[in-house]
């Protein structure tokens, strides 16, 4: 249970200590990738709680979502339309939904105890 949290901490520390930063024009892509990753993560947690978790779906969804989001943003830049907003919107909505589901499940679990 605590291992993923530890992983998160390690990742953050690694990122902060590596003194690595990306150019300004690519920060859009990274932000949307972060959003996609978070979406996948919460989706994974929800699936786990609903007992419909599938390893392959989770891992492939993680990378696929990131790539899709980044390419959408890329396309948007080249079309002159802020397409990345669509990704932000979609991921944001799903993030909220997932978190809401997780919350309900946790509440239901707590109330049954």
């Amino acid at each position: 249970m605590w291992l993923p949290v530890l992983g998160l901490v390690i990742g953050i520390l690694l990122g902060l200590m590596s003194n690595f930063s990306i150019p300004d024009e690519y920060s859009n892509y990274l932000s949307i990738a972060v959003l996609a990753a978070l979406d996948t993560l919460f989706g994974g947690i929800r699936a786990h709680l609903q007992n419909i978790y599938d390893e392959k779906v989770f891992v492939s969804g993680f990378f696929f979502n990131i790539i899709l989001a980044a390419s959408l943003a890329f396309l948007g830049v080249h079309l002159g339309v802020d397409l990345y907003l669509a990704a932000v919107f979609a991921f944001g909505v799903r993030l909220f939904q997932n978190i809401a589901v997780i919350r309900r499940i946790l509440i239901a679990k707590n109330s049954t105890k």
């Binding site: 993923p4 990742g11 690694l14 930063s21 300004d24 990274l30 972060v34």
Partner: peptide, 21 residues
């Protein structure tokens, strides 16, 4: 657990880099 750890690590890394940038 391992895959979750792996993915949270990547998310952490990305967050940190984005934060720094």
């Amino acid at each position: 657990t391992l895959s979750f750890t792996f993915i949270t690590m990547i998310i952490g890394l990305m967050l940190a880099v984005q934060f720094r940038s």
